[in-house]
Write a protein that binds this DNA or RNA. Structure first.
Lengths: 129, 129, 129, 129
DNA sequence: GTGGTCTAGACCACA
DNA sequence: GTGGTCTAGACCACA
């Protein structure tokens, strides 16, 4: 999984994937993130890049660094759930606004979604960009 | 309207907004785009940046330039409609994939959309990024 | 025939086509060229562009302007034949040098030519760019 | 070697020379190109101009860039050979079409080539444009 | 160091 | 006026 969108900074894409993992429960509050070096190797990316993603995460209050011990996801339960709501709302608005800019009505927007979800493999097409 | 997302190249954002305008009918096939210099001034951006957006557009077969006369949207009607389908599908997949990465089920995804569209001002919140 | 190579100035392409016409006998020494306006209309090009092509032609000693009468091909017979030799040599060197730069041997270069000329429609493929 | 044909965009000439180098085996698949800045200095040209040449190359599927590491020739062996065929055919058609436009017969065309190749220095006259 | 984007501004071919 | 190319040089993300 080292194919990044070249039009978006990689550190932002890494940061995002971590937030997704937290919100979806793959990473739990209090858990330790992979070390910068481990993660960099996995992603075939320079450690500086992972480092920057972790910094952003900390700035957002989602992780915290413990000297010599690594980076941990914050325990703050409500923060996680509000994060989920915020990210979902962001995705939703991007979808709705984008469709409306293309001239789709509310009915169209709902119909397109239903149609796509009804597809046999509706759950796993393409890649997230 | 000169606020660009700092995480995405400006020329891509300009290119995108033109495609939206075409698909939504604001710009019609055969019509002339604003000149590079005009548009650059409007957007408070360097002419080179607008030109790059126009170049991409031409590479995508959406516009054509007539020497000394300006840049025109191609007449090819079917191209416009396939462009609309492609852009809509892109938005849709980004929404679905994003939601699924957050752990939402198909039901949740539909419910969230309906809820948002039902809001009184459901048609014009936030900004398109 | 108004498809010009966008990477070469149009006036040079017009100038070239006139020289070809002279050398191939389509235009004869002493003959009058089409007026700037006529030619511009035929080529769907701005008169200034044709004008510039004619200027170049005169600079090369191939045509001369007679006030109020138009542009005429020079009578100088030897000039025409030397023009033919020069243009042919130019084409030839471009071909040979290009092929050699690609790593072809003299044998290859001859073989490729023979092969192409032996094709059924070997005399009229593609367009001159 | 910084003399460019003023009638052809410099970035196209640079792009061309790289393709020639690849096809003739001077540059091999997988190899790294000189950096934009290095090449710009060598050619006494602005870095932006070299970059544009590299971009075109990438668009043509001939090179790929690795973030922060440089630009590399693609490994795709067949692409190289088809590139060679395409460039040779282009040169050939330009020669044949040009000669025919001058009124030369197929016999003449072949004869001229043989004559030139038979010259003592037939392998290295003039400059490649 | 390496490529990507952007600005500021010049000059050219063409209309 | 209109797009195309080019220079000079800045700043950014990434290695």
């Amino acid at each position: 999984m080292s194919d990044f969108d070249p039009n978006l900074p990689i550190y932002i894409q890494i940061n995002n994937s971590i937030k997704q993992a937290i919100v979806s429960g793959i990473l739990k509050p209090g858990e330790r993130l992979a070390s910068v070096r481990e993660r960099a190797e996995e992603l075939a990316v320079n450690p500086n890049t992972v480092q920057r993603a972790y910094q952003e995460l900390e700035r957002e209050g989602i992780s915290e660094t413990r000297r010599g011990m690594g980076t941990y996801i914050v325990e703050h339960e409500s923060l996680i759930s509000s994060l989920k709501a915020e990210m979902a709302h962001d995705l939703l608005r991007k979808y709705i606004d984008g469709m409306q800019a293309l001239g789709f009505s509310s009915g169209d927007i709902t119909a397109e979604l239903s149609g796509e979800l009804a597809k046999p493999n509706g759950l796993s097409t393409g890649g997230k960009r």
